[in-house]
Structures are given as C-alpha cells and as structure tokens.
Design a protein around this nucleic acid. Structure first.
Lengths: 332, 332
DNA sequence: GCAACCAGTTCCCAAGGGGGT
DNA sequence: CACCCCCTTGGGAACTGGTTG
C-alpha cells in the first residue's frame, strides 16, 4: 500500500479517474447522496480507492458548493472563566462531532477584532453563553451567518437562565440552612463583566432564602486585591451573619482567607460555600465546600441547541435534579 | 444608507454589476493586487460600493481559489492548563490578525477525534506546544497541511524548550538559595501527560542547583487526592529539606496545605514557591510565592513562529531576562 | 476584462437491462 | 415474439464565489 507523496493533494477527480468513472459518482458514494442509487460493487470500489489514495475532501470547496461549512463557533466569555467550562466544551464537541459538525471555540476579547472569527470561518452557527452586542450581531448577519444563538430577537436559551445557573445557588442556601444558619450573605467578585450572571445567581439565592423563611441575604462585591474582603467579614461578624454563599470558589477563597486573617474561625463562626468545584478548592485550608455541576450534561445541552438550529431536531429538556450537586468539605 | 436585507449574501459579482464593471476589477481593487493598475477613480467607486452594499468576501471561496485559508490552528495541551495560557493566546491572536491571519485554538482531547479540526478548517499552519503524535502528523499531511510546528523532522522550537520553560525554575531555585536554603526538593503533579515538561523543568532546577553549589534536589510526584503530599512533607522534614520548588501553583498549594496540616510552619520550616502566578495564589493562606511569566512576550513569540512558516519572515530572538519574574509572597 | 480554474455538489438526463402485455 | 415502459445506474454540466494569466 504505497501512498503517493505527491505535492498536490488527492482530489475526488483523482479517485474518479483512477477508477474510470465520473467525479459525480464519487461524490454520490462518499456522501451517501439520497435519491441516487449506486450499485454496491461500485460503491465498494470507490470507497476502497478513496482510502487507498488517501483522499480527503477539500473543506473549502465543500463549504462553497453546499453553502454550509458544518462549523459551529462557540464564543466563551472573557471573564474569569469557570474552571468547568473547558469540560463543557469537550462534551459539546464530542456530541457535535457525532452529528458531523466541528466545534470551534474562542474567547471574546475586549478589544474588538478587525476581522472577527466568524468572518474567517463562515460557521453555520455562532453561539454565545451571553447575548452578543448589536455590532457583533450586525457583523454576523453581514457575513451571512445563518443562525445566531442567543438570537437577539428571541428568548434566552434555557441553559443560559435555567437550572444550570440557578440550581447551584439554591443548593448553597439550602445547605447553609440545613446547618442551622439563618443570616446569610452573598459574595461576588467586583467585576463588571460578571454583572448579569451575578445578578441571576443572587436572585436565585434570595428566592431560596425567602422560600426557606430566612431573612433577605446581604450582598457584597469584593475586590480580591484590596481589603474589601476583610471589611466584609468584619461587618458580617458584627452583624450576625454566619453563612456565606460565594459566587464561585475563588470568591469563597477570598472570604475564607480574610476570615482566617481576622481570626474568625471557619466554619466555627463563619461557614463559607463556593461554586464550581475548582480543582484547587480541595487543597485550600480549610478545604472549600462547593457545588459541582453536571458538566457533561451542560455540554450536551449546548450541543443540542446548536443542532436544533442547523438540523431542526427537537431539544430534550434538562433534568434539574441532576444538574448540580453539593460537595461538602471543611469550610461549612 | 439602506442596506439590503436580502436572503442571499452580497458577492463581488453584485458589486461589479452594480458598477457596470467586471468581477475581476473588483477583486483587484479589494486585494490591492500588485501588477494591476486601476485608476484611482474606479478604485474609490469600488470601495464605496462594496461598503454600501455590505460586501464580505466569502472565505471558503477565497480559500479554494488561492489554496490558502489564512487560518492558523494552535493545539493547546489537555493537561492542567497553565492559567496564563489564555493570555498567551490573546496576544498571539492579536499579532496574527495584524498580519491577516486568524488564530483558532483548540484543546487536544484524549479521545481521538474521528474528524480532527485540521480537516475541518484547512489551516495553513498547525502549531502545538508539544510535538504531535505520528498518527496526527500523518493525518495532517494527508489533509494537505503545508506546515506543522513543531515539525517532527526538525528541532523543537525555542519557546518549547527555551527560556520560557527553564527561566522560571532557575528563578525559583535562586530565590530559595538567596534565602539560605540548601536542601531543596522539586514537586510535580502525578500526571502522565505532563512528563515531558516536568522533565524539562526538573532538569532546569537541577542545573541551577548544581550551578549554585547545592546538593541535587529530591524529586517527587504528588497525587492531590491521596496522602502523598503529606508523606512527602514528612519525609522532607525528616531529611532536612527546607525549600520546595513546585511545578506550578496548584502543586505548591498541595504542599503548603499538607505542611500546614502536619503542623510544619510555612515558611518557617518549609518554604514553598509555585509557578505561573495563578490568580488564587494570592488568596491562599499563606499566600504563595510564585513566578510570573511574560505572557505577552510568549504570545508574540508563538505568533512570530507561525508567520515565519507562512510568510518566511525572520523570527526575533527572545530576551530571557524579561521572560520570568519572581513574585514573593508569604510562602517563602 | 474575458476566461480558465480551484474542488466539490447537485439537477437533470441518458443508456441499458428486466419485466410485463 | 416484439414492443414498450420503467427503474436502476451513472454521467454531463452548471453552479458555488473568488483569483489570476
């Protein structure tokens, strides 16, 4: 089996010529074109010859000819990225690949790119975890992007405001309440880019507190590089707050560190729970209680949303019960 | 300025027709084709009309016609990714965009993809921080990828074994030596995927120790989920090791946590220094001394390497002195 | 500026064989 | 037995949007 080491790549025409048939037939076989019937013998010969010659379809040519690239572009947020995001993506990528699509991710940078990635890739779908700016949407439309998710004209997707966002905060509050805490505070990073999601999480925390008959939680934004965390724990300590729900593990770490430095025992006088189950959360002293999300589930959810857009298949509902789980460690 | 909201996207032919000239001329103007002389008047009319109609070149068509996609694919390692990597990429992306290329990154997943991304994107260059497997290289060649970096047949690139890898470890050792530590240990995660780079860093540590006249450092691989870190600190404590160079901040955190739990004062009896200046390193108690890398510099380095491959321009040397800096905190 | 070309996709039609009347 | 019809199999050629001699 000597594979040619030619300069030129192998094309469908090469396969056809080598077999004495037409390019069209090669295409029919390799794409299982419906509405065309090719004899089994020919089919096998084509497949074998394509394999032998090491044929690879030229994607640019395919994209040009059918008007679709089978590429899906996923914009990841610029903000302090949840550790888990990477695994979301791995799973989404797996599901999409099975459906014949390639998932490309990129990080939305503050500086507006001169030539955004959707122009360079001509994806069939551009997805984002948060809505895109007007400018970006306009640019996508001009580039001929068929579907944009979230579509500015429609409702946010379930996985943007749904269980994946609010299940965790609910568990955090419930856990603290189980332990007997009544005065609870919510701590978040002081980062403008996080406003929307912090808002969503805080509102979930408040609702859960209400539901459990607890007083409305205090809410604070901490800058990790100044003394705001220390001030916060002092004031909580003074005002009788004994449980802190943190936006994520990093925030939880800042709170715990401040408490330790202020001589406030954790969890003795202040219990703290994070979110995301970051790998180092277990290494912290005291180790951080946190929320673990069902990453694979969320990844599938994202993938399915994309497939709905391109294939029109129905999207399965997500099961809230499975989506988030409590991981109890030393900090509560 | 009413922009058409047609179903079909605007093509160069539309621009040409609207102006009563040929498609070719439009192409010449929009690409500044050298060797073609177009009157300034026509040039302006073309540019204005393209703008007015919202023309965007169809990348797949361009890629097909010229044979190059102006896409560069960068494979990121699957392993516990250095926090900084994201910023490497941002800078590399910026530089490449200025040169007219789009950088796409992806994470190499353990599971072999059926249809790897380089087949879907037809990039001009595929780069990796570590060498690719034989299989991957073969697959890339079959897909017609013109240049692969690192090329299996050539030397590893400077930024793979060069200052960016070894500058940090050198500083770590020097810092501990400055503080009077003589018996030093090296701690790394127990992760097979990291073998190569751990090897490179350890060898840098050993060389620096040698150079400073210190005994050869002990070396240990820690599993963060069992008691191996606690065993390690016990044994170090027993054998007179007083300084630990950690592979990264996470490893440093594991060592510090183990020491604290064993009642060994940090940095009193054991000084620990991490690597990467992860955001949460500052939040740890005690806060972690670490090494901060010149991320932007490394990003530029990567970008330039890619441009050398596609454009044949010369690659500037990197300045080792600027590449890594010590960040001293409480753990040393 | 005309025309060829890049590498596929796809509509439409032609040849040929088999079965039915 | 001749004829016709239809179905299977596969090919011709236009088309995708730009680049370039």
């Amino acid at each position: 089996m000597t594979v040619e080491t030619k300069n030129r790549r192998v094309t469908a025409a090469d396969v056809a010529k080598s077999l004495g048939i037409s390019r069209a037939t090669v295409g029919f076989v390799l794409n299982n074109t419906r509405g065309q019937t090719i004899s089994e013998a020919t089919r096998q010969r084509v497949i074998a010859e394509a394999e032998r010659l090491g044929y690879r379809p030229h994607t640019a040519a395919q994209a040009l000819a059918r008007g679709r690239s089978r590429i899906i572009l996923l914009a990841l947020p610029d903000w302090p990225v949840e550790h888990s995001l990477g695994r979301h993506v791995a799973e989404a990528s797996r599901v999409l690949e099975e459906a014949g699509y390639s998932l490309v991710t990129y990080t939305l940078h503050e500086s507006e790119a001169v030539r955004p990635l959707w122009e360079a890739l001509d994806p069939d779908v551009v997805m984002g975890l948060l809505p895109f700016s007007e400018r970006d949407v306009a640019s996508m439309r001009a580039s001929g992007i068929a579907s944009i998710i979230p579509d500015p004209s429609s409702e946010p997707m379930a996985w943007q405001t749904g269980p994946s966002i609010v299940a965790g905060p609910g568990l955090q509050v419930a856990h603290l309440a189980d332990l007997g805490h009544r005065r609870i505070a919510f701590a978040a990073p002081d980062d403008a880019r996080l406003t929307a999601i912090v808002e969503a999480r805080f509102s979930a925390v408040r609702n859960k507190a209400l539901e459990l008959g607890l007083p409305t939680p205090d809410r604070r934004h901490l800058d990790f590089h100044d003394s705001s965390a220390r001030q916060a724990v002092q004031q909580w300590s003074a005002s009788g707050v004994t449980g802190v729900v943190a936006y994520n593990d990093e925030t939880a770490a800042a709170v715990v560190a401040a408490a330790v430095r202020e001589g406030i025992p954790v969890p003795g006088e202040l219990a703290v729970i994070g979110h995301d189950d970051t790998p180092w959360a277990e290494l912290f002293v005291p180790s951080l209680s946190t929320i673990r999300l069902d990453i694979e589930g969320l990844g599938r959810q994202i993938a399915m949303t994309a497939l709905v857009a391109v294939d029109g298949r129905a999207v399965p509902a997500e099961d809230p019960a499975l989506i988030a789980a409590l991981v109890r460690r030393e900090s509560t």
